[in-house]
Structure formats: structure tokens, C-alpha cells
Design a protein around this nucleic acid. Structure first.
Length: 843
RNA sequence: GCGGGCGUGGCGGAGUCGGCAGACGCAGGGAACUUAAAAUUCCCCGGGCGAGAGCCCGCGUGGGUUCGAAUCCCACCGCCCGCACCA
């Protein structure tokens, strides 16, 4: 090279920094990987593929985690293209959200400018790393051209009664005077102010995701996702089966007659063991009956504050339960007996009905509370063993924990002697007959709270009219755009505090002036719950997406992203697709057919962060070794699902291998140029090595095991080296190198493209068809067979392929190193053709 | 506590349809080339015994099934990730 004029006769060295940026820029500027025009209605499954990667959030430059996702995804996509698929591979930015707003608050930045600056930085890194996205489909969720349709989506749900407003307990930061998103609450404190977050009632917008609870649960069986993600969703949905049963207050109380209180239980069979009754402290009946009791109010306030703070830091078992005896009793409808009523912190207002029948004998929490308060623990079940045999009766005085196993009912009136499962069904039936309740399925899943008192998000397209109520903004008035002159220094919501924005509207229904805009914005998870639909037609300003395109392209064939979205984003997207299906806008039941969760990139065993001083950024890696080495290092380190500890891997090693590929290719070109190209004596081995590599690497690519695919390509590289060591190398060497470059192209797109051109090809290596192997080369005339005696390897023999057991056995027995172990009667012979023979002898 | 996953050389990892454990690489050691270095190329590289051929041990631990187990079954230990007072 030019800075070493004295060594200019040396072969050109591999210098990725000199060749990668220009190629990267060309791919981007030429839109080399855009899929225009789109195949749509003719999509038949075989010819097209929708590959999706979770779009980045633009807070700063790309980090190593992004590089990991995109590298895996890009290898997948480039490989699929070479196998003939037409791949839709879009990119965009999840560009609304709190960091931009916080930057505005803290540093006076303009959130829009801040966001787009970060996007540009990320975009150039993505281009530099050679990720083959379709740059025609770029979208930004903060662009009015996008969020117009996010607002449309909201109105669709509003029209379907799947979006509604009600009062709910939300996270309130008393210092910043604002509601916080759950993700802004860290260990019970506001992330900015450090103040303990309170639960306060506030009117909020919700999406009725619970309407789809059963389908969201059942359809998990139809999608190809990691089991742990499905399990996380199952747990989050939290379906349980039981019954609702009505208890009455023992006295008439404030309304003049006994009040009815419904409880939810999964163990109706244990109702005869309900020896007390517990309300959530905020339960309305309790609030009414304890009104004016200052001690009670203090208890309730402490509980509501305490529960949120301590839930995150303390194990429930260590904490003890807090409760107070209320000033009334309840009647157990089955026994007719009066039982004491309590309010306690271990009963939650927002699950079930906010009240429970407490069965200390059969529920650990009730047991603990009963012990603590000296309440009766009544045995109503006698344990049975595995074969249904009766075991010892329970003794409440000596028990240390509740009994939750199988048994038969005792002390349970007409149900005595029934197995507990049978008693459960009988009691459910009887409850219905007597009008005391009904069978009931319950879910842990809550409706999705989507409103935020923040201003860097899509305004909720609703107008509140004094006479008409909540009125949808007419579609032709969308988008409801954010004003450009928000003041982010105000306390509370900048949108709410804007001098004119919310008032500059009349009611679309009655034309009345006494109307204001909704000042809340939508959760950023709403933006990301449908972006994969917008990718189908990002420039279309007449509709969110064309129905035929949605039907053609959904579900996404492969979705790659982090497991941190196991529940939220992936559950919300599933809900949105199902809701849009029911609105007639698409046909798919699920958004993402297959999901791949890539591992994390960590450093020295810990997640990377600036504060820990262990941060590695993609830039410093590709500025040293190049993008190909960065990509190769990540994929060679381990399987895509596994974490990568950057301290354990070696971009240097990857660079060394790529340099070897470079040298071998240039040496071959030199042979051809000087007319000395001719295959040497090792040509047959090399031919075979090519076939082995094609077959092996193809299998690995199909299984997305890029680490072993690379290992096989290294082996092929070493075979080329061995075959050309003597300076020989002709057509077969060229074929070996071209195959190597083709097989490596999806992983290291730059060096392969460059060398492909240097080998004299006009087009791109990425347009080459995936190679197939001459499998006849894989067939061996002779095979090595392992000889075992009593299961231990004692020798190896060479035999013709397909040799019979008799022939192999004879040859094995004749082998000197084997014969010495054959001292006894041959009792059994196990023969695995062409692989192994095991001679079992008995002394 | 409940649910899920994982334990293989100094390190990342192969092998996981039961059939030669440690592919491929990193780190390390040695050699060639060089005035020297870098780069490159070659050799060695789980532990023990042995001059050597080779033998024994070895995939978290202990059992089991089998001609044969890293792989299948049982129990235990350890680590990681979810969820966590959900009635």
C-alpha cells in the first residue's frame, strides 16, 4: 500500500476500513434491498417471506444489543434471498416516548430534533454495518403521517367499544406532580424525582384486552415461539377457574338490609372451612361502613402506600400480613354461621372481586393470617394418598402450613365423604341452583392502560364536549397534531398546559364551543403494536394499510428481538391484530408466526453500562476490525439465543480468518493472472471439502446455527490452504473459493462482495443462488468402522462401504489390537452399518 | 414459593434422533521465516500412568435403563431467567 512504497510488491492486505464504507453507501443509495414492487395478492407462502426485527428506539447511537439483533436478522434475510425468497425486510424507528421528553425537560432540547438527530446517527450505523433493510419502507412513529393512523387505530377500537375511559389507580409522583408509566417506577420510586410513587385514582383510557384473554391464551398453541415466552404470556394472562359466591353481611348496615358481597374462589369445595372473611382495604362496602374511623383511614392509606413499595423488594413470606377487624360480620351461605370480617393488605382490590372467603386450612395466606390473629382453622378435608387411600386427619393445632393436596371432604355437611374435585363441581352446581353464585373464569390480565400525561406521543383523538361527552375526532381531521411550541419546563403535562391547543376546537357533534381536546397521549406501546402493518404501505395517506396486503403478508414469518418484550409488546400486538381482524381490516389471527429471542451482549459477566465502565459500542469495533469482523464475531460466539460475553470473544480471531480468505483469493487471482493456475494433487480432497461445506453450512443456516456454519467455512478455508500450499490451484480452487464466498456472504457481506468482484463477476455475490453440493462426492468407497468390545473402543478397521455384518465382524476379530480382548464366549454382536461394531463377550 | 432453562478443557463452544467426547476458534507453549519485530506458516495443547505402543480416569453429584449414556429415566446440588399475597 502507498504508505509502504518499499514493500509494494507484497500482496494487498485485507483492509476492511478501506472497502466497507463505499460498498455500504452504494447498497443504501441504490436501494439494493428494497422490495418494490411488492408481491402481494399473489403471495403463496413459498416465494415470499416477511422478516421483521424489533425496530429501535432512538436514544443515542446503536448499542451492541442492536448490532446483535440486526446481525442475526440480516444473516437470516440474506440467506433467504439467496435461496430464492422475496424478502420483505423493513426498518423504522419507535420514535415517541419518554427519553425525548426528559431530554427536553432536563436539557431544554427540542424532542423532535433530539429524536431525529439520534435516528440519523443510528441510520448511518445501520448502513455502515451492511444491514440489508428496505430503505423504501422507513417509518417513524413520531411522524404525523404515521401517528395519524395510530389515532385512527384508537378510534377503531373506540368505535368497537374496545377503548374506554374509567377511573383507575395509577402511579403518581408527588414531587413532579405527574402520573408515571410503570416502566418509570423503579423500586417503588419515581426514576427522576426519587419520590415514593403513590397509587391514586385517576380517570384513564384503557383498551379492553381482557375481552381477548381466552383467545390470547389458546392461540399460543398455534405459534412457533420460545416456550419461555409463551409461558410468560400464560402467566401474565393468568387464567383460573372457580366460582363466584355471594355472602351477606350479618347485620342490616347503612342501607337498611344485609348487603351482598361476592367473592371469587378457585376452591368452592372448601367453603365449609371459611372461618372468616377478608376485604381489600379499599373495598367500597368497607369504606362506607368504616367512614369516619380515623384509625381505619390511616390503616388503609398506609397499606396502599406500603404495598407498592414493599412488593418490589420483599418476599411476601417475610413480610407478615396486616389486617384490622371490621365492625361487622358475614354469613357463610353454606353453614349459615356468622364469621368475622377483616380488611387486610393481602387481598387486592383489583383482582377477583376485592373480597375473599378465608379458608385457613387450605390456603397458605389465610393460614398465616389466622395463626397471627388467633382465628379458627377448621379441617374440612382429610388427605388422601397417591392411590386414594385415607391418610391421617389434619390437626389444626399442630399444622405448620395449609394443606393444599388431594383429599375427601369432612365437616362439610352433605358433601362429607366426596373426593374434593367432585365436591368442587357439586358445590358449583348447587350454588347456581340456589342463586348464590355461578361458575366463573378469572384472569390476572388487566385492561391495558394506554393514556399518558405526557406530550411526546400521539394525542388521543377525542374531544370532550360538555353536552355530548366523549366524541371521536372525525377521520378527516386526523392527525390531531402536536403543537410545535410546547413548553417542557412546566410542571405536569406540557400539552395540558399549552395556552391554546386544547381549547382550539368545537364539538364535532353539536358544534358547541364548550369542548376541549383530550390532553393525554397514547402509550408508546400503542405505536409499536401495529407498525408491522404500516410497513406494508408506509407512504399510503388514504388508509393505515391495504387489506389485501395485510392478508398477503401476515402473519410475519420471522420476528427477531429481545426477550424483554416477552409480555408487553408481544401481547399488545397480538391483541391489536385480533381486534383489527374482528373489525374486518385483516384476516390473520396472529401477528408473528415465529419468534427468535436473541441473547444479550454482556461484558465480564455483567450487562454493559457507561456507569460500570464496561461499555463497548459497535463503532469502536467496526472502526478497528470492520463490520464483517463485528458481524462474524457475534455469530461465531454462540447460538443466536445465547448471551455473548464480549470479554470472551475475539474480533481479532475473526479478522485473522477473513484475512486468510482474502489472501487465498488474491493468491488464486494472481495464479490466473500469471497463467500458472492448475489444480494440484490434492484436488479430490478439495472437491470433497467443498461438498461437505455446502451440505453442512446449508443445514446450519436453515437451523440458524451460524456459529457452526462459520466453523464449517473455516474448515473449508483450511482445506483450500492445504490444497494450494504447494502453489497449485486451478478450476477447483476457484470453485472452492467462490463457494466459500457465497456461503459466507450472508454473514460477512462486504469482503465477500469485494472478492466476488475481484474474481471477475459483474453482479453482486448477494444475488447468487445458494450453492448445491455434488453429493456423489460425499459417498465413500471405504469407511472406518469403530470396533468395540463390551462397549469400549478397542480398535478401528477400514471396510468397504455397506459391508455386511459378517464381513465386518470377521475383520474386527482379526484385528490384532481387538483380538486380545476377546477372551470369552461371544454372546452378542451389535452392528451399526458403516459406523460401528460392538462384540460382547462373557468370560 | 411457583414456572421455565442450563451445567462439557484455561475460555467461547461442537457433539444432544444413545454409537470414536472436546469440531471450529480464543488464550497458552514450541518451531520456521526475519538483523529484529510484525505478519505468515507448521507442531503441541482435558487429567493421570508409561520410554513407547498403549492403559486408566473424565461432560455438576449419586443411582438406574442399555451391548453401549454428555445424550434417556429418577433423586440431589449449583447457576440463570420469568412470575410472585392473583384467593
Amino acid at each position: 500500500m502507498s504508505d509502504h512504497p518499499d514493500v509494494q510488491d507484497e500482496p494487498e492486505r485485507y483492509d476492511p476500513l478501506a472497502l466497507e464504507p463505499a460498498i455500504a453507501r452504494r447498497w443504501h443509495d441504490d436501494r439494493a434491498y428494497s422490495l418494490t414492487p411488492r408481491p402481494s395478492a399473489d403471495r403463496d407462502g413459498a416465494g415470499t417471506f416477511y422478516a421483521l426485527t424489533m425496530f429501535p428506539y432512538p436514544s443515542g447511537d446503536l448499542h451492541m444489543g442492536h448490532a446483535e439483533i440486526f446481525t442475526i436478522h440480516d444473516a437470516l434475510v440474506r440467506h433467504l434471498r439467496m435461496t430464492g425468497k422475496r424478502v420483505l425486510n423493513p426498518i423504522g424507528w419507535d420514535a415517541f416516548g419518554l427519553p425525548a421528553e426528559n431530554a427536553a425537560r432536563n436539557r431544554g432540547a427540542d424532542p423532535k430534533q433530539w429524536t431525529y438527530d439520534n435516528i440519523e446517527e443510528q441510520r448511518s450505523t445501520i448502513i455502515r454495518l451492511g444491514y440489508s433493510f428496505d430503505w423504501d419502507t422507513v417509518l417513524y412513529t413520531c411522524d404525523p403521517a404515521y401517528y395519524r393512523w395510530t389515532q385512527w387505530l384508537f378510534l377503531e377500537l373506540f368505535d368497537a367499544n374496545l377503548a374506554y375511559r374509567r377511573e383507575a389507580l395509577v402511579n403518581w409522583d408527588p414531587v413532579d406532580q405527574t402520573v408515571l408509566a410503570n416502566e418509570q417506577v423503579v423500586d417503588g420510586r419515581g426514576e427522576r424525582s426519587g419520590a415514593i410513587v403513590q397509587r391514586v385514582p385517576r380517570t384513564q383510557w384503557f383498551f379492553r384486552i381482557t375481552d381477548y384473554a381466552d383467545e390470547l391464551l389458546d392461540d399460543l398453541e398455534t405459534i412457533d415461539w420460545p416456550e419461555r415466552v409463551k409461558n410468560a404470556q400464560r402467566a401474565w394472562i393468568g387464567r383460573s377457574e372457580g366460582a363466584e359466591i355471594t355472602f351477606k353481611t350479618a347485620d342490616a348496615g347503612p342501607i337498611g338490609e344485609p348487603e351482598e358481597v361476592v367473592v371469587y374462589t378457585t376452591r368452592p369445595d372448601t367453603i365449609f372451612g371459611a372461618t372468616y372473611f377478608v376485604f381489600a382495604p379499599e373495598h367500597p362496602i368497607v369504606t362506607a361502613r368504616m367512614a369516619g374511623d380515623a384509625d381505619y383511614d390511616a390503616f388503609r392509606d398506609e397499606v396502599s402506600r406500603r404495598s407498592e413499595v414493599e412488593r418490589v423488594s420483599t418476599m411476601s413470606a417475610d413480610r407478615g400480613k396486616r389486617g384490622v377487624r371490621l365492625n361487622f360480620d358475614m354469613i357463610n351461605p353454606f353453614t349459615g354461621g356468622s364469621i368475622p370480617a377483616y380488611a387486610a393488605d393481602y387481598v387486592l382490590m383489583d383482582y377477583g372481586t376485592g373480597a375473599i372467603m378465608a379458608v385457613p386450612i387450605g390456603d397458605q395466606r389465610d393460614f398465616e393470617f389466622a395463626r397471627q390473629e388467633g382465628l379458627e382453622i377448621r379441617p374440612i378435608i382429610r388427605p388422601t394418598g397417591e392411590d386414594g387411600e385415607l391418610l391421617d386427619e389434619l390437626d389444626p393445632d399442630t399444622m405448620t402450613e395449609a394443606y393444599v393436596g388431594p383429599g375427601v371432604m369432612v365437616n362439610s355437611g352433605d358433601y362429607d365423604g366426596l373426593p374434593w374435585e367432585e365436591a368442587k363441581q357439586r358445590i358449583i352446581d348447587d350454588v347456581s341452583v340456589k342463586g348464590w353464585g355461578a361458575e366463573r373464569v378469572n384472569y390476572r390480565l388487566r385492561d391495558w392502560l394506554v393514556s399518558r400525561q405526557r406530550s411526546w406521543g400521539p394525542p388521543i383523538p377525542i374531544i370532550h364536549c360538555a353536552t355530548c361527552g366523549e366524541i371521536a375526532v372525525p377521520l378527516e381531521d386526523l392527525p390531531v397534531a402536536l403543537p410545535d411550541d410546547l413548553d417542557f419546563q412546566v410542571q405536569g403535562s406540557p400539552l395540558d398546559q399549552h395556552p391554546t391547543w386544547k381549547h382550539d376546537v368545537v364539538c364535532p357533534e353539536c358544534g358547541g364551543e364548550d369542548a376541549v381536546r383530550d390532553v393525554d397521549t397514547l402509550d408508546t406501546f400503542v405505536d409499536s403494536s401495529w407498525y408491522f402493518l404500516r410497513y406494508l404501505s408506509p407512504q399510503d395517506d388514504t388508509r393505515a394499510w391495504p387489506k389485501d396486503a395485510a392478508n398477503a403478508w401476515l402473519p410475519v414469518d420471522q420476528y427477531t428481538g429481545g426477550v424483554e418484550h416477552a409480555v408487553l409488546h408481544l401481547l399488545y400486538s397480538r391483541f391489536v391484530v385480533k381486534a383489527m381482524r374482528d373489525r374486518g381490516h385483516l384476516a390473520a389471527d396472529e401477528p408473528f408466526q415465529a419468534l427468535l429471542n436473541q441473547g444479550q451482549v454482556i461484558m465480564d459477566g455483567a450487562s454493559m453500562s457507561k456507569s460500570k465502565g464496561n461499555l463497548v459500542v459497535p463503532g469502536e469495533v467496526y472502526d478497528t476490525y470492520g463490520a464483517d469482523a463485528l458481524r462474524g464475531t457475534m455469530l461465531f460466539a454462540s447460538a443466536p439465543e445465547d448471551d455473548i460475553d464480549w470479554a470472551d470473544v475475539s474480533p481479532t480471531g475473526m479478522h485473522k480468518w477473513l484475512s486468510r480468505v482474502w489472501r487465498l483469493t488474491l493468491a488464486h487471482i494472481d495464479r490466473e493472472t500469471t497463467g500458472s493456475a492448475a489444480d494440484g494433487p490434492a484436488v479430490d480432497e478439495l472437491r470433497k471439502a467443498v461438498a461437505v461445506a455446502v451440505v453442512g453450512a446449508s443445514e446450519d443456516y436453515d437451523a440458524r446455527k451460524y456459529n457452526t456454519a462459520i466453523a464449517k467455512l473455516m474448515t473449508l478455508t483450511n482445506a483450500v490452504l492445504d490444497a494450494t500450499r504447494d502453489g497449485s490451484g486451478g478450476e477447483v480452487a476457484r470453485e472452492a473459493l467462490e463457494t466459500l464466498l457465497t456461503l459466507l456472504a450472508p454473514i460477512c457481506p462486504f469482503i465477500t462482495e469485494e472478492l466476488w468482484h475481484r474474481l471477475g463477476h459483474e453482479g453482486s455475490v448477494h444475488d447468487v443462488a445458494w450453492p448445491t453440493a455434488d453429493t456423489s462426492l460425499l459417498f465413500e468407497d471405504e469407511v472406518e468402522i469403530v470396533v468395540q468390545v463390551n462397549g469400549k473402543v478397542r480398535g478401528r478397521i477400514t471396510a468397504p462401504a455397506g459391508a455386511s455384518q459378517d464381513d465386518v465382524q470377521a475383520a474386527a476379530a482379526a484385528d490384532a489390537s481387538v483380538a486380545e480382548y476377546l477372551d470369552g464366549d461371544l454372546v452378542k454382536v451389535v452392528h451399526v452399518p458403516d459406523k460401528l461394531i460392538n462384540l460382547v463377550v462373557k468370560a
